[in-house]
């Protein structure tokens, strides 16, 4: 049996439409599994519930029906302790560049917080080294660490967001339209980096996008969310 780093089984989700008294079904009985190191694309028009599916897999939202398995453990049945243990292996990158970083903190401090959370006994120097090696992998310069999020370009800040995620040693990442607000030239760079890192770190990635051409280049498998008939 293949090992999946994340698996959703028979997921259904609907939401209440404001003003009218009816439920809108986003998807019914949707199943999805991702292997370590695999990039899976999730395609759909805006408003079809792409981001919601990502949030359900990450345990940020609850599905109406169905189960999510992290490392083959059902998270709705797992205890609080087990969930907490696995929590940081499941990460997300947001669409809006820079929104993963608090505006009043320097990038370096934000990254330090993450390293210290993962390895509480590490000293300042080993934290700095760890950050330095991670950002080097993403072709970022050390000088940029001193800046605040709004002093960086969209491409730089999205790569820092990727660095932030990597410091958590993730096994699975939801990249929610990570480049839709960026230029094509920057997008190319970031998606290529994401592909390399996923393969190298054996990290499963769900790449959410409304750009089919992008997914065709980046992913071998693409899930298309249609309002009525989700097909695989």
């Amino acid at each position: 049996m293949t090992f999946y780093c994340i698996r959703g089984e028979n997921l259904s989700k609907s939401y209440r439409v404001l003003g009218r008294n009816n439920q809108k079904q986003l998807y019914r009985d949707l199943s999805l599994a991702i292997r370590p190191g695999e990039l899976v694309g999730l395609f759909g028009q805006s408003g079809c519930g792409k981001s919601t599916l990502g949030d359900i897999l990450l345990g940020l939202k609850k599905p109406d029906r169905g189960d999510v398995f992290w490392n083959e453990i059902n998270i709705s049945q797992a205890g609080q302790k087990k969930r907490k243990e696995l929590r940081h292996f499941y990460q997300k990158i947001h669409q809006e560049p820079g929104s993963s970083f608090p505006p009043q903190q320097r990038i370096e401090d934000a990254l330090h917080d993450i390293v210290r959370l993962r390895q509480p006994d590490s000293d300042h120097d080993s934290c700095t080294n760890k950050i330095a090696s991670t950002i080097q992998e993403l072709h970022l310069e050390k000088e940029l660490l001193n800046r605040y999020p709004d002093q960086l370009s969209g491409g730089e800040i999205q790569r820092f967001a990727l660095a932030r995620v990597l410091l958590n040693n993730p096994v699975f990442l939801v990249a929610d339209e990570p480049t839709s607000r960026l230029d094509y030239s920057v997008q190319a760079k970031i998606i290529r980096l994401l592909m390399q890192i996923a393969a190298k770190n054996k990290m499963g990635v769900l790449l959410i996008s409304h750009d089919h051409a992008l997914l065709e280049v980046a992913c071998r498998r693409i899930v298309i969310l249609d309002q009525k008939h989700p097909e695989m």
């Binding site: 094509y184 992008l214 280049v217 980046a218």
Partner: peptide, 15 residues
């Protein structure tokens, strides 16, 4: 040329 190649339709090759 690099800019054209970076578009997703054209293979998304970084400049």
């Amino acid at each position: 040329r690099g800019l054209i190649g970076a578009a997703p339709e054209n293979g998304m090759i970084p400049i």
